[in-house]
C-alpha cells in the first residue's frame, strides 16, 4: 500500500510544487513588469502563515484518499493480506509525509520568490523563518487533512466528497463572527474547526487585533498562554484521522 501511495504522492507533489513555482515565477514577472519604484517588504517570520493556507488545498485534496479508496478500489485494497487499519494508516502516513514535502516546497518557492524579486527591485526581507510557527502550521494543515478524510469517508458514496470540508470549514469560520444567537450556536464547537483556531491563534498574538470580534472574544478565554492552539489542532487532526480510519475499517464495499 505504501508503494502505491508513494507513487500517487510523488505525482501529486510534482504537480503541486510545479504549479506553485510556476505561479511564483509568474508573480515575479508581473512584479518586474509593473515596477514603478518603491520596495518589496516582507517579514520571513510570518511567512509560514500564507504558506499554510496554500498547503491546506493540497491537504484537502489528499484527505479524500481514504474515502475514495473505500469505493471501487476497495475490491483490490481490502483483499490485500494485511489488517485494514494498517492499510489505512499507511495511506495516512504517506499523506502526512507528502504534506510536509508540499509545505517545504511552497515555503522554498515563497522565499525564492522574494529573492528573485530582489533582482528587479529593492526587497526588504526582515527576520527569519519561525520554525515553531512552521510546526504549528503543519499541525493546522494535518487538521484540515483530517477533516477532509473524515468527510470523505462519511460521504464516500460521492467521489472526492472530502473536498467539501474545505469550503465548509471556511464558511463555518466566517459565520462564527456573526453576532447574535446564530453566531453563538456555531461558535459552540468552534475549537474543532482548524481554520478558526489557527487564524485566531495567529490573530490573538498580533498587536493590532480587534479583540471585540465575537470569535476572538470567545477564543481569548482559552488563550491562557501562547501556543495553546497547537495541541487543539493536533487533537483535531488525530481525532478526525482516527475516526476516518475506524470508519474505513468497518465500511462495506459499495455496490457497483
Amino acid at each position: 500500500m505504501t508503494y502505491r501511495e508513494f507513487l500517487v504522492m510523488r505525482k501529486a507533489l510534482l504537480w503541486f510544487i510545479g504549479c506553485t513555482t510556476g505561479l511564483m515565477l509568474l508573480m515575479v514577472i508581473v512584479q518586474f513588469s509593473q515596477y514603478r519604484g518603491g520596495n518589496l517588504s516582507t517579514d520571513l517570520n510570518e511567512l509560514h502563515v500564507p504558506v499554510a493556507w496554500v498547503v491546506t488545498i493540497f491537504a484537502a485534496i489528499f484527505g479524500v484518499a481514504l474515502g475514495n479508496a473505500s469505493r471501487e478500489p476497495a475490491r483490490v485494497f481490502w483483499v490485500l493480506p494485511s489488517e485494514r487499519w494498517k492499510l489505512a494508516l499507511q495511506i495516512v502516513a504517506v499523506d502526512a509525509a507528502g504534506i510536509v514535502v508540499a509545505y517545504a516546497g511552497v515555503l522554498a518557492a515563497a522565499v525564492a520568490f522574494f529573492l528573485l524579486a530582489g533582482l528587479f527591485e529593492p526587497a526588504n526581507l526582515r527576520g527569519s523563518i519561525d520554525w515553531a510557527g512552521v510546526a504549528r502550521s503543519l499541525v493546522f494543515v494535518y487538521a484540515v487533512y483530517g477533516w477532509s478524510a473524515l468527510v470523505g469517508i462519511l460521504g464516500r458514496r460521492v467521489a472526492y466528497c472530502g473536498l467539501a470540508s474545505l469550503p465548509f470549514l471556511l464558511l463555518w469560520t466566517m459565520f462564527s463572527n456573526v453576532r447574535g444567537a446564530f453566531g453563538e450556536l456555531v461558535r459552540l464547537p468552534i475549537l474543532v474547526n482548524p481554520f478558526s483556531v489557527y487564524a485566531m491563534g495567529f490573530t490573538l498574538s498580533h498587536p493590532a487585533t480587534d479583540l471585540d470580534k465575537p470569535m476572538a472574544h470567545s477564543l481569548l478565554r482559552l488563550a491562557v498562554a501562547g501556543g495553546w492552539e497547537t495541541p487543539i489542532l493536533l487533537a483535531t487532526a488525530l481525532l478526525t484521522c482516527a475516526i476516518a480510519v475506524v470508519l474505513w475499517q468497518r465500511a462495506e464495499v459499495l455496490s457497483a
Partner: peptide
C-alpha cells in the same frame, strides 16, 4: 488473502 486471488467484475486497478 495471501492464499487467495480475486478479480472483481469491475476493473478496479488504478
Amino acid at each position: 488473502f495471501d492464499r487467495i486471488a480475486y478479480v472483481p467484475e469491475i476493473n478496479c486497478l488504478d
